[in-house]
Amino acid sequence: MAVPELAPRRTFGGIIAVWVFAAVIAVVIGVLATPDWRGAWLGVGLGGCLIAAFAIQLWSGRSQGFTERVAASVLGAALVMGVISLGFGLAALVPA
């Protein structure tokens, strides 16, 4: 029989933290990287978000739903980075 947790920790904050980390990384890559190398660096940044998601979810100390939380973190990070890179791509099309 499983023992219920008396005061379960909130896990949604860890997911949002990875999304914010992804947004910061995508903006930094978009500003600093050349347009030819942005795609490659965004892949590296997404790998960093995966490592951050594992670290944050392991730090929370809850085993229930670990895979779902990591998946939600990484999927959200990919969407955030995709939207920001789309913005940089559209900005590159506009002549200055």
Rank of each mutant, 00 (worst) to 15 (best):
A92K: 10
A77T: 08
A2D: 08
I51L: 15
I56G: 00
F21Q: 07
P4A: 11
I29L: 06
A40I: 11
I15Q: 00
L6Q: 12
R69Y: 07
V3C: 03
G14F: 06
V70K: 03
A53Y: 01
S63P: 00
R9Q: 10
G43A: 05
W37L: 13
L32T: 15
T11E: 15
L93T: 13
W59N: 00
G39M: 09
Q57V: 06
E68F: 11
A77N: 02
G45K: 05
V80H: 04
L86M: 15
Q64E: 15
F66I: 10
G39P: 04
L86Q: 11
P35E: 09
L79E: 04
G61W: 08
A26S: 05
G87H: 09
A53I: 05
A53N: 01
R62W: 05
F12W: 14
G30V: 04
F88E: 00
G14Y: 02
I16F: 14
R10A: 15
A23P: 00
V27H: 03
D36H: 08
F21W: 12
R10I: 13
E5F: 08
L32G: 05
E5C: 05
V83P: 01
I25M: 13
F12M: 07
R62D: 12
L42D: 07
F21N: 05
V80D: 02
G48I: 01
W19Y: 02
G82Y: 09
A17E: 10
R69K: 14
A77M: 03
R38Y: 01
G61V: 10
G43I: 02
M1C: 06
F12A: 14
A92V: 07
L50F: 13
G13Q: 09
G14R: 03
S60P: 00
L86F: 15
V83E: 03
T34F: 01
E5Y: 04
G82K: 09
A96D: 13
R62Y: 11
V20M: 10
F88T: 06
P8N: 11
V28D: 00
I56C: 03
V74N: 01
G47E: 11
V18M: 04
C49S: 10
F21D: 07
S73A: 15
L46I: 11
V44D: 06
I25E: 03
I56K: 05
L58P: 00
A23R: 02
V74Q: 02
S63L: 11
W19A: 02
L6E: 13
S60M: 12
C49E: 02
L50H: 05
V94D: 00
V3Y: 10
V94A: 08
W59I: 01
I25G: 05
A53V: 08
C49D: 05
L42K: 02
R62H: 14
P95Q: 06
M81I: 09
W37C: 00
A2Y: 07
A7S: 08
V70Y: 05
I15E: 02
A92Y: 12
F12G: 10
L79H: 06
